[in-house]
Design a protein around this nucleic acid. Structure first.
Lengths: 190, 190
DNA sequence: AAATAGCATTGACATTTGTCAAGTAAATAC
DNA sequence: GTATTTACTTGACAAATGTCAATGCTATTT
């Protein structure tokens, strides 16, 4: 149940068996059914979730009720509202499961303790943070410089799994276009 | 010449006079004339720059020669290509000054050494990284959910100084619209 | 199996944004 | 100070995307 997590960690740093065992003790395992919330707007985000299995998404809801998707997280990715997690303020985001999913949760005290007991792991999380930032920057560049069709192609090339496993109207929201527009873009290439 | 930097740092953590002195020794002071580069595409980004005075911007250049602006940095902000800084790979970004500017540069070895000698400062940089991420996330949400006009208003409300000090066509690029479109948006409200 | 609800597709049309071209204003160079 | 370049504005038109409404499809519920 920790296979994927340590696979990912050991791509970046290397932990001894003893260190791995110690790490495990800080996580809480959680299953989420499709459509279940991990976090709802207004709650404090107490955990960052590593996805062992399934797909989650984070999103906001506008005044008009429209959903705006910020992030998808497939197996091997992490998700959570960092801002709320750190500050303890209520989150503006919702996070829920798009498929039945299995998660490894880490609370803030657990992170702190883990960093203390297994200092090496700090580097992994720092790298993670950087990667997340860089990825977001890339998405930003894509968004200001490309048309709807180009954005779709870029996403398809970079993360084909997302396109396959996520409903189309959510992909549209992620790209910042209407579902009808995405449907028309897709029709072109059949 | 370090006033602004320590003003910012001490908003988050508190350093003793001795610690401040120690910190100072890790920075390199640099003046940049308007239009001068801090970083050019293809170079390795060796420094993160804290802006004491002036305005810088980071941007990419597309195949068609169009510039896409990623970030502005006014007094009190930092700028640099984190990815290149960390990995040592050549940067895909350009960074230059939009006004005569004064910078405090920190190299990677200097950061490492500073963190070691003044551990407290680690927290400041971790917070900085988080804030940068959260700000980018906000911008992303704005970009996928708002029209050109709304994006302009949002930017104007959040960072009026940017609008005043940066050429309009760069604002347009930052928002992901054409200069003509921005000009027409601005005309409406006079 | 039938009923329901949500999702994807399509068409007609409206709105927003982009493109091209021209002209003016402002900044910079000489 | 004049010349030259660069930035901003404006208009006419084109292209992209959004809106609204109808339809069929698929999955879920009962």
């Amino acid at each position: 149940m920790f296979e994927l997590y340590f696979k990912k960690v050991n791509e970046k740093i290397s932990l001894t068996a003893a260190e791995e065992e110690l790490c495990k003790s800080f996580f809480v395992y959680k299953k989420l059914r499709k459509r279940q919330y991990l976090l709802q707007e207004g709650e404090v985000n107490k955990y960052t979730a590593f996805v062992e299995k399934g797909v989650l998404r984070s999103y906001t809801v506008g005044e008009n009720g429209a959903e705006h998707i910020l992030q998808f997280a497939l197996e091997g990715w992490s998700i959570g509202d960092i801002y709320s997690f750190i500050t303890g303020e209520p989150s503006k985001y919702n996070i829920d499961a798009l498929e039945d999913s299995e998660l490894l949760l880490l609370s803030k005290p657990a992170v702190d303790e883990m960093m203390l007991r297994v200092p090496k792991i700090q580097q992994y999380y720092y790298l993670q943070m950087q990667n997340a930032y860089v990825a977001l920057q890339r998405r930003m560049t894509m968004n200001i410089s490309q048309t709807a069709e180009e954005k779709y192609k870029t996403l398809l090339a970079a993360y084909p799994e997302i396109i396959q496993r996520v409903p189309q109207h959510m992909i549209a929201s992620y790209l910042g276009v209407k579902p009808e527009t995405l449907s028309r873009i897709r029709r072109k290439k059949l």
